[in-house]
Structures are given as structure tokens and as C-alpha cells.
Design a protein around this nucleic acid. Structure first.
Length: 478
RNA sequence: CGGGGUUUGGCGCAGUUUGGCAGCGCACUUGGUUUGGGACCAAGGGGCCGCAGGUUCAAAUCCUGUAACCCCGACCA
């Protein structure tokens, strides 16, 4: 059978309609399901299991840097939300309000948290007195609500799951260091665990978080060439501290404002996993975070000893891997397609012929390559194959990004690339917001980030021709 | 919030033009035969056609209103 033959008819081909392909996968793989409230999704077991694996990975890395988990309330009084001017302006248009408690109208309406800066700040003002109280390194896992105009599963939900870290430090240097540290944690999780290459950089003032002095971001590229902001880390300086009165006494008995950071990664990253790795056969999950790393499919189960051999193999592999066995009476062919569609990295076939030869067949999700391995060392072989798949997936994603990344020195060139090829365009920028807006109006592309790794494409702004300050990645984004 | 589209068993759809017994495929249940890339036979169960009004002897079908969802834009993680 040809490798590229479409196995699952219910999934629209990527090239035909990428958006429909995405929706088909989410639905067919049972990642999430629509609920009665627009944009509020049911995270089904499989989708939630992916999130749990990401969560465990991140949580451990956070804690390794000294972060502690807390749980904040989900309601924010209007007066508290109002305290920092830029912040409220950024979020007010999209918050949901609670106006009644039971049948009684509340004296002050409460917003359902769209993010919890104000709650953390209010709390920090309560508990921070001395330089000995610093730093505070808190994180919470929760859901937040943003009343978006249009929604898409995982990419833009009304309510979504995330973590938000909030830290308070004695000095600006320390806050800056923490901001970069957490960005690096996100980049590591994306690249080493999710097999998604990222561009690390800084957001322009226009794109930065409401209330931040600077926002760092990791940007990834989807298979269709569109960009997705995959994690952000913000430096607040002492802006929030001044608005909320978060002060401490330093070693010299002087009042000082704290310097703060916040950083978050959301279930949106699941959308990135789908759109970076998936193909026409369905989802493709990196072994490190796949809820099931290998599925065992017995062949000719009615034959003597097959079921027993499959069960024994399952029990044995389960000691080291996340493995499952499908002993249902569906045909093997159906199971092959089904588990490919669900993105399980490795399929293990075991049938009468294998049992005779003391072997099993490992089949990779990425290229359907079959390896016949002895049962004596199947653990090592499976481990090796998963490492290979993890690397192949990263390499393929990187190759896609590289092939869709261009440079432009002139505006004509720039517009042509955005229009015809898409992807990331590296181009110089003068630093003026007017050029950013013009580019957006002309092309719908936005500045994705000012990458830490700068290149000199030319010495003039691609838009206005004035002297350039930075090289910027531009692109259309989700 | 603007433009377009959709809404009929769990899923995908036909039926609407021209009003007249609610259908098909998949899935599901039971029994049997199968099993190395979505098996086959047989017998079953399940829908007051998004919702609310209206016209009519009669409405999935015509009229009015309304909601949700999807796609494309503007806003966002």
C-alpha cells in the first residue's frame, strides 16, 4: 500500500482545507467536544491526558527552580481589576461579569478571572514586608475565561486551562533573570518534549502583555505556515507594585517596590501539537508526551496462544512504558488506522507467525516502517524507536519551518512573500509602531517577535526605509 | 462585531425547488463466519427534522422571528 494513501475518509486532507482538517482531527481523535456555551469545550479523556503529561513536565521544571503552587480565587472585584490602567484596558473588553449572588444583586460586580495578576498583586501587598520575604515564586494551575469574539478548539476557547506563574523580586535584575529563565523552560518543553522548534524573542510594544514592561515569547510555526505564540514570559518592572503598593523594607531600612514577572502556557499548545505534527492520517504525538506510547494489536486472536502472548507482552512492557492492548474484535486493519489517527507513536503487532519466531513487529507512526524485533530485547528496541520518532518529529517540524522562513529587504518583496508563500519573513524594522500597523493593514501579517538571535538583513526598515533598529520575524498568526 | 454557510437518530448526509407514512451510509445491539492495512452474512434498537410563533385538511418542506455552530475578516493565549 502506498504510504501517502489516505486511510481515514472522515478526515479532510490538509491541503484541501487545513482548518477543516484541524477540526476533523480534534473531533475524530476525541480530544475535545463542544458544550452548550460557545467556546467552552469539554476536554475529553484523551485530550486531557495530553494536557496532564504537559502539566507534569512543566510542573516539575517549575518546582526545580523553586516555584510553589497556590490556588487563587476565580473572582476579581471590579475595583481590584481597575487598579493597573494598562492592564484593565487590555482585558476589560473580554471579561465575563458576575452581577448576582443567588437572587441578590451584588454591591460590586465581580469578573471571572481572565488572568490573575491583580489577585496575586493584592495578595503580595498583604504578605510582603521585608527583603527577607523575597522572592515570592508562585504558580497556579487553573482555568481562565476570556469572552472572545470567535472561538476554535484549543486555539481560542472562552474558558481554557493554563498555568500562570507570578513572582515578586527585590531587584529588576532578578526579575529580568526570572523572565528569561521561564521562557527557557517553555522553550525546552516545546523542543525536547513536544518536538516543536521555537523562535525565542521579545514582543514589540504593540504586541506585549497589558501592563508589562517587556514580554518574551516563543513562536512556533504550524504546518500551514501560520505562527502560533506558544508561551510567554512577562517582566512587569515595578509598575504593578506601584499600582498595588507592594513594598518591602530593604537591608538599609528603606521602603522599596518589588519587581514582578508573570508567565503562562495554556492548552493552546495542544493545538500546536496537532498543527505542527499531524498529517492526513490524523494526529501524531511525540512519544514523550503521548498518553499511550505503544498499542499492541494481536493478529488472528482466535488462534491458540495469541491473546495470552499479547497480554503477557502488555504486562511486561507496562512496567516501563505507557502501553495499551486492543483485544477487541475489530479487524486488525481497522485498529491500524484508528491508532494512527489517534497519533500513537508505535504500534506493536503480534500474531501466530511472530509467536513461533519469538518476535513482534514494531511499526512507527511517522513513516509506517516495520521492524521485526526479538521478544528478548523488545524493551530496548522500543526505547530506541521512540527516541528515533521523537527526533524525526522535531527534525520534520524544523525542516518545515526552515522551508517556510524567508528574508525580505524591500517592501515589495515582503508583501509578495507574505501573500504567495506565507510563513515567517525576517525583515528589518525601524521600531516605529506606525510601520507595524501599516504592515498589518497591508498584509494582515503581524510582528511575531524580535528574535534574540539577530541577523542583519539590511540597514533600513522594510516598510519606511528609515534606519533599522531590529530584525523582526513577521507572519500571519493564529 | 461585519460577510458567507450550516442545523434532520451518536456521526456524516439525502429529502425542502413542487407541502402528503421521516429515509440512507457509518456507528450501536444480538448470533454466526472472519482476522498481517478500516471483513462478511443475518436479525434488531434508536429521530415529534435547532427553538418559538404563523399559514394549511395536512409542514422537515411555505412565512416570520430567534439561537447555536462552522468558515473568512477585525480583537486575543
Amino acid at each position: 500500500m502506498a504510504d501517502n494513501k489516505k486511510m481515514v475518509e472522515e478526515i479532510t486532507s490538509m491541503n484541501e482545507d487545513f482548518a477543516q482538517w484541524y477540526t476533523d482531527i480534534v473531533r475524530k481523535a476525541e480530544l475535545c467536544s463542544y458544550s452548550k456555551v460557545r467556546g467552552c469545550m469539554v476536554f475529553q479523556p484523551y485530550g486531557y491526558a495530553i494536557w496532564e503529561n504537559i502539566q507534569h513536565t512543566l510542573d516539575k521544571m517549575f518546582k526545580d527552580t523553586g516555584v510553589q503552587n497556590v490556588a487563587m480565587p476565580m473572582f476579581i472585584p471590579e475595583s481590584l481589576l481597575q487598579k493597573e490602567k494598562d492592564h484593565v484596558e487590555g482585558f476589560a473588553p473580554e471579561v465575563a461579569w458576575v452581577t448576582h449572588g443567588g437572587s441578590e444583586k451584588l454591591p460590586e460586580r465581580l469578573c471571572v478571572r481572565p488572568t490573575s495578576e491583580t489577585l496575586f498583586c493584592d495578595h503580595y501587598a498583604d504578605i510582603i514586608r521585608s527583603y527577607r520575604d523575597l522572592p515570592k515564586l508562585y504558580n497556579q494551575w487553573c482555568s481562565v475565561v476570556r469572552w472572545e469574539k470567535t472561538t476554535r478548539p484549543f486555539l481560542r476557547n472562552t474558558e481554557f486551562l493554563w498555568q500562570e506563574g507570578h513572582t515578586a523580586h527585590a531587584t529588576q535584575e532578578e526579575a529580568e533573570e526570572r523572565t528569561r529563565m521561564m521562557l527557557n523552560v517553555y522553550a525546552k518543553v516545546c523542543e525536547d518534549y513536544l518536538a516543536i522548534p521555537v523562535v525565542k524573542g521579545k514582543k514589540t510594544d504593540r504586541e506585549k502583555f497589558a501592563g508589562a514592561t517587556e514580554t518574551f515569547t516563543i513562536e512556533s510555526m504550524m504546518h500551514d505556515g501560520k505562527a502560533l505564540q506558544s508561551g510567554t514570559s512577562h517582566n512587569f518592572g515595578d509598575g504593578f507594585a506601584k499600582a498595588f503598593g507592594i513594598q518591602y523594607l530593604d537591608e538599609n531600612n528603606k521602603q522599596q517596590y518589588v519587581h514582578q514577572t508573570s508567565w503562562g502556557m495554556s492548552t493552546r499548545i495542544i493545538g500546536a501539537i496537532i498543527m505542527v505534527h499531524g498529517d492526513d492520517a490524523g494526529l501524531k504525538l511525540p512519544p514523550k508526551i503521548a498518553p499511550t506510547q505503544a498499542v499492541i494489536i494481536p493478529i488472528a486472536m482466535h488462534k491458540e496462544g495469541v491473546t495470552e502472548a499479547a497480554e503477557a507482552l502488555r504486562d511486561r512492557l507496562a512496567k516501563k512504558f505507557r502501553v495499551s492492548l486492543d483485544a477487541s474484535d475489530k479487524s486488525p486493519g481497522w485498529k491500524f488506522s484508528e491508532y494512527e489517527m489517534r497519533g500513537i507513536p508505535v504500534r506493536i503487532e503480534i500474531g501466530p507467525k511472530d509467536i513461533e519466531k519469538n518476535q513482534a513487529v514494531l511499526v512507527s507512526r511517522v513513516d509506517r516502517e516495520k521492524t521485526f524485533v526479538s521478544l528478548d530485547n523488545i524493551e530496548e528496541e522500543l526505547e530506541k524507536l521512540m527516541d528515533k520518532i521523537q527526533k524525526q518529529m522535531y527534525d520534520a517540524a524544523l525542516a518545515n519551518r526552515e522551508s517556510k522562513t524567508s528574508s525580505a529587504a524591500t517592501y515589495e518583496e515582503f508583501k509578495k512573500i507574505i501573500d504567495e508563500k506565507g510563513g515567517f519573513v525576517k525583515a528589518m524594522w525601524c521600531g516605529d509602531e506606525a510601520c507595524e500597523l501599516k504592515i498589518k493593514d497591508d498584509t494582515t501579517a503581524t510582528s511575531r517577535c524580535i528574535p534574540f538571535e539577530q541577523e542583519q538583513i539590511s540597514d533600513k526598515c522594510v516598510c519606511c526605509g528609515k534606519p533599522a533598529k531590529h530584525m523582526v520575524y513577521w507572519g500571519k498568526a493564529y
